[in-house]
Amino acid sequence: MDPGLEAAFKHVERLLYGDSGRLGLTIYDLERLVGYPARGEGPLSYTLPKTQALSGVQAVRLYYYPKDPNLQLIVEIEDREGKKHLRHFRWNGLTWEVPEGKRGELKSTEETPGLLKVGEDYFLGFPREEAVELEKEVRKGEALGAKYLLCPRCGARIFYAPSVRPEGVACPRCGNTTLLFKTLSGLEPHKDPLEALAEEQRALRKAIEELVAYLKRKLGP
Rank of each mutant, 00 (worst) to 15 (best):
E31T: 07
N92A: 11
E41M: 11
T26H: 05
P66F: 01
L30A: 07
D79M: 04
N92L: 04
P43R: 07
K67Q: 15
D68P: 06
S55D: 15
Y63W: 12
L30P: 04
Y64I: 00
R90P: 03
H88N: 12
G42H: 04
Q58T: 09
T95A: 09
A53F: 13
A38R: 15
S45C: 10
Q52K: 15
W91R: 02
L48S: 05
Q52Y: 11
W91K: 12
P69V: 07
I27C: 11
R32S: 14
P43E: 05
A38Y: 12
L44M: 03
A38T: 03
Y28N: 09
L33A: 09
P66T: 03
R90H: 08
A53H: 13
I74N: 07
F89N: 01
I74F: 05
Q72F: 06
R80E: 14
I74A: 08
L44K: 02
I74S: 03
E76R: 13
L73V: 07
N92S: 14
N92F: 02
P66Y: 08
I77V: 14
E81C: 04
Y65L: 11
N70M: 10
G24W: 08
H85T: 00
E76V: 02
T26Y: 06
E41S: 15
L54K: 08
V57A: 12
G56I: 02
Q52D: 15
T51S: 15
A53C: 04
Q52G: 11
H85D: 03
V57I: 07
G24S: 09
L73T: 05
K50W: 04
W91S: 05
R87N: 14
A53M: 03
Q58P: 06
K83W: 09
V60L: 13
G82E: 04
K67D: 13
Q52T: 12
G56C: 08
D79Q: 08
H88F: 14
Y36D: 00
L54Y: 01
H85M: 05
F89D: 00
Q52C: 01
P49W: 00
T51M: 12
K83F: 15
V34K: 04
D29M: 02
G42A: 09
E78F: 05
R80S: 15
E76G: 12
K84I: 00
L44Q: 00
R90M: 13
R39S: 13
G82Y: 09
